[in-house]
Simulated assay, not measured.
Amino acid sequence: MTGQPYAEVIGDPIAQSKSPLIHGFWLEKLGIEARYDRCLVTVDGLADYLAARRADPDWRGCNVTMPHKLAIMPLMDRLDPLAARIGAVNTVVREADGTLVGYNTDAPGFLEPLRERLAETHLFRMARILGTGGAARAIVAALADKGFVIVLAGRDPAKAKAMLDELTTQQDHHAIDLAHFAHPTDFAFDDRERLFDVIVNASPLGMTGQPPLAFDFSHAPPNSMVYDIVTSPRDTAFLQEAREAGFPTVDGLAMLIGQADHAFRHFFGATPPRDGDSDAQLRARLEA
Rank of each mutant, 00 (worst) to 15 (best):
A179N: 09
D190E: 06
I139V: 15
Q210F: 08
T132Q: 00
I14L: 09
A127L: 00
L282W: 03
G11D: 08
M66C: 09
T208Y: 00
A136Q: 11
A220T: 07
L282P: 01
L79D: 15
G11A: 04
G206W: 08
G31C: 06
V9S: 11
P222H: 09
V149R: 12
L114E: 02
F181R: 07
L111N: 04
A144Y: 15
L100N: 11
T42A: 09
R265Q: 15
G87P: 07
N90I: 01
Q4M: 11
L152Y: 03
I257V: 14
T65P: 02
D12R: 12
L75G: 12
M66T: 12
T99L: 00
T168N: 13
H174S: 10
S203P: 10
A242H: 14
L195S: 09
P157Y: 03
L79F: 14
T168P: 13
H173D: 13
A202S: 10
Q240I: 09
S19P: 06
H266W: 10
E33V: 12
R60T: 14
D48K: 14
N201C: 09
H122S: 13
G252W: 07
E28I: 07
G102P: 10
E112H: 14
P248L: 13
G31H: 03
I32D: 02
A51S: 15
A51Q: 15
H122Q: 11
L130C: 09
T208A: 06
G133A: 02
I176K: 00
G209F: 02
G98Y: 01
Q281K: 11
Q171G: 15
A52Y: 05
G269R: 08
W26E: 11
Q170Y: 12
R125Y: 01
K29N: 04
R78W: 11
L178P: 10
L253N: 14
Q210M: 08
V151H: 14
R35S: 15
F264Y: 14
A15F: 06
D251S: 05
A153Q: 00
E95Q: 13
A270K: 00
K18P: 05
K161T: 04
A141E: 13
Q170G: 13
A138F: 08
D12K: 09
H180P: 00
P108W: 01
D145R: 13
R78K: 12
F187K: 03
R128D: 02
L30N: 08
A288V: 05
F268W: 03
S19H: 02
T185R: 06
A160V: 05
P20C: 03
D48W: 11
L253E: 10
D251G: 06
R60M: 13
F264E: 14
V226C: 10
F110R: 13
F264D: 13
M1P: 01
A179D: 08
P81M: 05
Q259V: 10
I72C: 15
P13F: 09
V151T: 15
P212Y: 04
P273F: 06
L130E: 07
